[in-house]
Design a protein around this nucleic acid. Structure first.
Lengths: 244, 244
DNA sequence: CGATGCTTTGAACTATTTCAACCTTAGTGG
DNA sequence: CCACTAAGGTTGAAATAGTTCAAAGCATCG
């Protein structure tokens, strides 16, 4: 194994859910060849594109988004290192949403033809990538629950709880805090709120003593109370290694 | 081929996206053996379950849902015949949400061991089922966009447009109208609204002349204007047959 | 005919947006 | 080291959207 394994965050992610043999890891390493860097605020893929490769996020934050006819933006998912952001194009072919780098990103790419070979030759790996799609769907559904039936403060708490757990998998948590380079405007596009209201919701969590959020860093002060307030139950992340 | 093909709606669904050989169709028919009926308002699967089979909806409307700590319900997806409602359990193992029959439902079931065989032996079919998961994810994301950045009336219009197209695939549209047996309270649980407000949003669409909705039937009066008002673009349903 | 389960209405209250300003911070060039 | 600038963060106040509570209307079924 190479000293610095480029796809280490992906393996960390998959191995949370099931064991991978060395041959299976090698097959993933073999298809994720090209590397690419994208500056903050740049599009990684645009709506309408028909890419011939899929992208794995190695470093940075990225998000899916859609624009409405009125020019408003809604982010529909938030991605951290180790996640495939673009399996979508492999089977759906045409992008029905854009993907934007929210901070400087490093990305590995796999040709769709190579991904197809994975489904033919190493079905177990294919199932784990399929599981990744299922989990991203589960994350979207929790997002819907939070938007529909929780207070905005509880929704923000839920997002922070979830990020905390997803970042922990890829070792991006230090002292109960993590680097989070999004502006409040970007956060408002995540939660579907106005900038002004977003600011007030953040202040609510600060005032409650749950978190602090300054200079691109979110620190969790009281995990248990934050979790309870958010109604957060990590079952939907399926962080349990079992045969799949 | 049997005269009445039980899984015909599933095949209609998959064949919208790619061609299937007779052998591939047979492999699906072979695993969807058991049939089951569920009464309206009954759970098909409950949160926390670890099912050993996955369910395909043959008849009726079903929905995924989550309860919040405060006892409120949010539906997170709506399903029509021909859709796998429960691929989730095949790979995720533990249900992180419940699935409820919104009307009397007929369901076909496949053992997870048989689904696993599909991924090993007929990878093309597996890719199409994976695509089904991807499309359900895309539907969830559109739902998020509508909740976050559209008016409630536009959100309802978008749901109606989408249902219209999904029901068309399985031949459930007659004269621009379809059977829709949900109460306004169930609809409120879909849109994350109070019952009172839900009622007012429905009246808004009626007053605009876009639809009528009486006695469990929704009729579309002006498809073009409804579509424009909803900002509906069906790209995300990937209704195009191409090699996948 | 009465019971039951949706649907509709009114009115008071709360949450969220919009608009318009002001404040803070981290550069940048002199 | 300081003045200036740009970007992001914070505040107040009026307007709009959505909830809640309470009641009344309307079908359907036995």
């Amino acid at each position: 194994m190479a000293q610095t394994d480029m796809i280490a965050p992906l393996l960390a992610n998959l191995e949370q859910r099931d064991r991978l043999s060395d041959a299976e890891k090698a097959s993933l390493r073999a298809i994720l060849t090209r590397e690419r860097r994208v500056a903050a605020q740049e599009d990684i893929v645009m709506e309408g594109d028909r890419p011939t490769t899929s992208s794995l996020l190695l470093e940075g934050f990225a998000a899916r988004y859609n624009m409405t006819g009125e020019g408003q933006r809604q982010l529909t998912s938030l991605h951290v290192p180790g996640e495939f952001i673009d399996l979508h194009a492999f089977l759906a072919k045409t992008m029905d949403h854009g993907i934007v780098a929210l901070s400087p990103c490093r990305i590995a790419m796999a040709e769709h033809s190579a991904m197809r070979d994975i489904t033919e030759r190493t079905p177990h790996v294919a199932r784990l990538l399929w599981l990744d799609t299922l989990i991203q769907g589960a994350i979207s559904r929790q997002w819907i629950v939070a938007m529909g039936r929780r207070s905005r403060a509880a929704h923000l708490s839920q997002i922070i709880c979830e990020l905390y757990m997803r970042l922990q998998i890829v070792d991006q948590i230090e002292d109960d805090s993590f680097h989070f380079p999004l502006s409040q405007l970007q956060m408002a596009d995540i939660m579907g709120l106005s900038l002004v209201h977003m600011n007030r919701v953040i202040q609510e969590l600060r005032a409650a003593g749950f978190i602090s959020w300054t200079r691109e860093r979110i620190a969790i002060h009281d995990w248990e109370r934050l979790k309870a307030f958010a109604g957060f139950d990590p079952t939907y992340l399926h962080l349990r290694s079992e045969p799949r």
